[in-house]
Design a protein around this nucleic acid. Structure first.
Lengths: 345, 345
DNA sequence: TTTGATTGGGAAAACGTTTTCCTTGTGGCA
DNA sequence: TGCCACAAGGAAAACGTTTTCCCAATCAAA
C-alpha cells in the first residue's frame, strides 16, 4: 500500500501535509479540525480545510496516530480454537460490536497453545492495541505478565486461570450443568453417562462438576465407568472415541451429557454406527447449542448460549476497563433447549 | 497498554532507547542488530546488546516500525460472511499460514455490504497493511480505487467483480457444477431441481450455469418451475423458503442441487417437515462440504473444497504480488464426496 | 609511507500524527 | 486609556523506528 505523498501530487494517499498545503493552513489546524477541537479555527477556515479533505480524499494514517497517542484502534481477540463454531460465533458477534464502537478487531487463533498465546500477546502489545479479549485463555507466562502490568484484558467463556479479579464475560456454567441433570431426573432417567473434553477449560469443569453434584444430591449414581473422555483437541474425535469406550465397556445409558455440542456430534456418530437411535434409544444433551442444530441436529437437546449478546458485553467490559479500571463481571443468560422426537417428525 | 519508557526504569515496556542506554551504544546499533544487518557491529557489541534485550524483554514497537517502513505486519482478511462455516474455515486456514509467514491477520466481516467493505478498505489502507484478502468481494467504489492504485489485493472464492487480471485463489466451480450434473445423470435421474443463493457471487453463478449447461447437453430438461431461490443473505433460510416453494408448486424431484451446503440444510429441514426422507426419497447435493457433514449430515453429497490449502495459496499470491507484481491465479483441486444410505446405517 | 577499501559505529533525518507552547489580534470592561 | 480574556492559528517537540550519511580506525596492497 503506497505511503502518502506529502506534496499533494502523485497517486499516493494524501497526508495531513498535503491537506494543509492545499487549504493554506498549518498541519496543526488540520489535525484539530479532523479531531473536532473547538475554538481553534474560524468557520471559513474549517470550511476550507474540509473541502481540501474531501477533494483529496484524506483519511488520517492510523499508524502515525497510534504512535503519537500510544494507542491504536485495534482490539485483539485471541481465540482458543476458531474451528469451534461456538467460538466463531462469539468472534463474529465481537467483530460487529467492536466496529460499532469504533474499533477494529484483530483475530488470532491460539490453538490452545500457551506458546502461541504468548507470541500473540507480545505482538499485540507491540501493536498498541486498545484491549485484548481472551476467548478461552490458557495459563502462560506472558498472560501473567500482562495481568501484572494491568493491561486491559477481558476473559470470555473460560475464567481467568489464576486468582485475582479480572473482567469476565460468560454464562453460568454451573447452573446450566445442574439444569442438564434436572432434565434427566425430571424424566425419571437414572441410567446416565457423561462425556467431557479437556478439563483445562474452566467452563468444562464447571459444567460437569455441577452436573455430578446435582446427581449426587438426588441420589443417582454416576460411577466412573459411565464417565468417558479422550485425548486431543478436536471435540468431534473426542466424542467419537469416548462413546466408543462406553460401548466397549458394555454401558447402555438412557441419557448422556456431552460437555459440548461437538462432542455430542462425535458420540452421535458412533451411536449411529452402532445402530442406536437418538433420541429414541438414548437421549443426548450437548452444550453451546450450535446455531446449526435446528437444521442438522434436531435430535440434540442443548444449552443455548446467547452468542449475539457477547459482543456488546465485551465492548462494555473494555470501556469500563479503560475508564475506571473496574473489572466488570458479566454473566449472560443461557437457555435450555429441548429437542426430541417431536421435532424429528 | 503502557507505552514504553525511554529510560529503562519503571514498569512500562522497554523501548529501543532503554536498550541502547543499557548496552552503552546508540539506538542505530540496536536497530541494526535487531534486524540482523551484517558488518555493522563487532561480536562483543552484539553480545552486549543482545543481553540487554533479553534482560529488558525488549521487542520492537510495531507501530514505530510500520510508520518508518511504510508497511506493517498486518494482513487484512475481509470476509463476506463469517457465519458461513466455509468462510470461517478458510479464514482459519489463512490465519495459520499468515502467522507462519510472519504476518498477523486482521479479520473483518463485510456482511456482503459494499459500504462496509469500503469502510474497511479505507481503514486497512490507513493501517499500512501488507495486503488485503477479499473472501467474497462485492463491487464497490473503494475496491475499484484500490485496484486502480495497484494495492496488493487477493480475491478468494469469488472472482474479482470487474475486468482486469488480479490475484485469485479458488476452485473450478464450473467443473464441479458439471460433476454434480453428471452425478445425477450417471444414476439415471432425470427429474431434477436446483436451489441457489444470490447470483451476485461469481462462485454461485459458475456452479449453476455449468450445471444447467451440462443437463442441457444431455438433453435433460430443467424447467424454470424446478429452479428456486429466495431473498436474503442467510443461506439456511433461503434453502428452507426455496424448498417450500418447490413443494408448494407440486414438484417432487428425484434429485436437487443446492448451491451451498447451508442451502441444502435449509432444504433438508423443509423436506423433513414434509415427511420426505433424504436420501431415500430424494437425493440432495450440496456444495462446500462443511467439515461437520460427516458428523451431522451423512445424507448430504457435496463438493469438498480444500480449506486447508487456501492459506498457503493466499500467502503465495501475496508474496508474488509484493515481489514481482504478477497476479497469481491458483485453482485448487476439489473433490466430489458421495454420501448415501450406506453411510446412514 | 601513501592510497584505498573495509569494519564498527554514531548523529540525525524521516515517517504522519497530536499536543504543548507561543504569538497576534480583537473585543469587553473598568 | 489601560488591561484582561479569548479566539485563531502557527512552530516545534514528541512518539519509536529505520536508514542515510558521516567519521574514525584498521589493514592490505603498492
Amino acid at each position: 500500500m503506497g505511503r502518502p505523498r506529502r506534496d499533494g501530487t502523485g497517486g499516493g494517499a494524501p497526508s495531513i501535509t498535503s491537506v494543509a498545503e492545499r487549504a493554506g493552513v498549518s498541519i496543526a489546524t488540520v489535525s484539530r479540525i479532523v479531531n473536532g477541537v473547538a475554538n481553534k479555527a474560524g468557520p471559513d477556515t474549517v470550511a476550507r480545510v474540509q473541502r481540501a479533505i474531501a477533494e483529496l480524499g484524506y483519511r488520517p494514517v492510523s499508524v502515525g496516530r497510534a504512535l503519537r497517542r500510544g494507542e491504536s484502534r485495534l482490539v485483539a481477540l485471541l481465540a482458543a480454537n476458531l474451528g469451534n463454531p461456538a467460538m466463531a460465533a462469539i468472534a463474529a458477534s465481537a467483530e460487529t460490536a467492536l466496529r460499532e464502537a469504533g474499533a477494529v478487531m484483530v483475530l488470532c487463533d491460539t490453538h490452545d497453545s500457551p506458546a502461541l498465546q504468548d507470541e500473540y500477546l507480545l505482538e499485540m502489545r507491540a501493536q498498541f492495541v486498545r484491549g485484548i479479549v481472551l476467548l478461552g485463555a490458557v495459563p502462560s507466562p506472558q498472560l501473567a505478565a500482562c495481568r501484572a502490568a494491568g493491561d486491559p484484558l477481558v476473559f470470555v467463556g473460560r475464567r481467568p486461570p489464576d486468582g485475582p479479579a479480572a473482567a469476565f464475560v460468560g454464562i453460568d456454567n454451573a447452573g446450566a450443568g445442574r439444569e442438564v441433570a434436572d432434565h434427566f431426573l425430571d424424566r425419571g432417567m437414572r441410567e446416565l453417562a457423561l462425556i467431557h473434553g479437556p478439563l483445562q477449560s474452566s467452563a468444562t469443569r464447571d459444567r460437569i462438576t455441577a452436573f455430578r453434584a446435582r446427581l449426587a444430591e438426588a441420589g443417582v449414581p454416576l460411577p466412573a465407568s459411565r464417565i468417558a473422555t479422550a485425548d486431543g483437541i478436536d471435540h468431534l474425535a473426542i466424542g467419537h472415541a469416548a462413546m466408543d469406550r462406553l460401548l466397549a465397556a458394555g454401558t447402555r445409558p438412557a441419557g448422556i451429557f456431552c460437555s459440548s455440542d461437538l462432542i455430542a456430534y462425535g458420540a452421535h456418530r458412533r451411536l449411529r454406527e452402532a445402530g442406536i437411535d437418538v433420541p429414541a434409544d438414548v437421549v443426548l444433551v450437548g452444550f453451546d447449542d450450535n446455531p446449526l442444530n435446528d437444521w442438522v441436529a434436531p435430535w440434540l437437546t442443548s444449552v443455548q448460549v446467547p452468542y449475539r449478546a457477547f459482543g456488546a458485553a465485551i465492548v462494555e467490559a473494555l470501556a469500563a476497563l479503560s475508564a475506571g479500571g473496574t473489572a466488570l463481571r458479566t454473566i449472560l443468560p443461557h437457555q435450555f433447549v429441548v429437542r426430541g422426537p417431536a421435532g424429528a417428525a
